[in-house]
Simulated scan of single mutants.
Amino acid sequence: MTQLQGFSDYKKERYESSCFTALEGSGEETLFLLHGQKSLVGTVVRQTTYDIHVASNGGELVVPKVDVKCHASASSAEVVSKLIKIDKKVSTLELGPIHAPAHRYFIKNKTLYPLIKEKQVMLLTLLEGEVIKGLVENFSRYDVEMRMKGGVGLTVLRHAIYDITDKKGRCYLKSFQKEARDWKRSALYI
């Protein structure tokens, strides 16, 4: 049987973890980029299945998880805003949150795993046109952790992804990789 070396162990360890679980109760000031070109800075007090409760400016806001596109440490907010570019073509599509998982733009786990190991620079485009350039560091069922220029960390929620390409423009979405199967070209594929 052929497989990706270390992939099943990685999935067992990380796949069910959620970035919101890590933030919940940590007290970490976090910058959240939300749909509708909004942002919010606060701390995750608690979470439910579909919402996060964020303490911000002395109050508590309930934010649907599907409204969160990505998040980073609040201390890196200025740097993050400079590093994120906009794809004007995608932004004119006026895409909002996609609630039904079957209609989302999906990246296969076995496509993401070699990208971590090979440290390949990727371009992640979000539904509203934001383009995040960096290395894929980790992923779970719900999110993809990126490391941008200068070591700035950013976590992208998988439901907010529109496209993922390498610097040459090769697509890594499931719809394309169904035929291309780039993970088979990885040195990890045994």
Results as ranks from 00 to 15, higher is better:
L188P: 07
I98D: 09
H103C: 06
L23T: 08
V68I: 08
Q177K: 03
L31P: 00
Y50N: 11
K88Q: 13
V90T: 13
L40K: 09
V156H: 03
K119E: 14
T155D: 10
V131D: 08
K12V: 02
N138H: 14
M122V: 14
S18A: 13
N138S: 15
A72E: 04
S186D: 14
Q5M: 05
S81E: 09
I164G: 00
E29Q: 15
G36Y: 07
G36N: 05
G6W: 07
A102T: 10
S75G: 15
K178E: 07
G42M: 00
E128L: 10
S175E: 14
G134I: 06
E128Y: 12
Q47T: 12
F106M: 08
Q37F: 11
L112P: 05
D166H: 06
K174W: 01
V131Q: 14
G36P: 06
Y10T: 02
G25V: 03
L61G: 03
E118C: 04
L127P: 02
E28V: 15
V63K: 01
E28Y: 13
I132H: 09
N138R: 15
R170W: 00
E28D: 15
L154N: 00
I84R: 12
R158H: 02
K11R: 15
L40C: 09
T49L: 14
A22E: 12
Y10Q: 02
K12F: 01
L33Y: 09
G36Q: 03
E118S: 12
T125V: 06
Q5H: 07
P97H: 04
I86T: 15
T21P: 00
R147D: 06
G59F: 12
P101A: 00
Y15C: 04
R104K: 08
N109S: 09
K168D: 11
F106T: 06
L135G: 00
E118N: 13
V66P: 00
Q5V: 03
S76N: 14
K89W: 00
F7W: 05
S140Y: 03
S75A: 15
Y15Q: 08
P101L: 01
E137S: 14
V66M: 00
E128F: 11
G151T: 02
Y105V: 04
G6A: 04
R46H: 01
L127H: 03
C19H: 04
G153D: 12
N138D: 15
R170E: 10
I116M: 09
G6M: 07
E128G: 10
Q47H: 08
E60V: 13
E28F: 13
